[in-house]
Amino acid sequence: MAEKRKVCVLGATGVGKTSLVARFARSIFSESYLTTIGVTIETRRVRCDDRELDLILWDLSGEDEFQDVQISYVRGSAGLLLVIDGTRRFTVETGLRLHAAARATAGELPSVVALNKADLTAAWEIDEAAEARLRRAGLLVTRTSAKTGAGVEGAFSALARAMLGSDAPLWRG
């Protein structure tokens, strides 16, 4: 039987969290933007180093002036995927703030940053300095495009591998 791991997906609004999860869990992408309310939960089974994992993906609503992130939802998580919109630099700040809040709630967790929308190279706003800042925060940084699928499997695989290598909690029933 596959082990379960809870993964919370965090980030500002409109960065592509739901699109990344949909691409990863269901191999689909839609250009239309549908805002998440509260949390959407999906499951995907992955194989990692000869072990089977059921990733329970908690896609949390983005943080903005209209809705707060329910950071208490990260309790019991085994890992975090922080999503940043590569075409909107300010979403780095939001991602880092949410990461700090998640750590304060759930402790140190394996965390991967997805610099999303990597297909929009002309509008890219994240420079080397910003990436270095994320790495200094102890985060593994990857580039993803939910639209093309580039880097998506890699981001989740990296997180799964990091979770297996850490003491993060198993899913509690």
Partner: peptide, 13 residues
């Protein structure tokens, strides 16, 4: 509780 969305096996929300 707060509301939440759960996906079914056949992609229904």
């Amino acid at each position: 509780s707060d509301g939440w969305t759960q996906m079914t096996e056949d992609d229904e929300a």
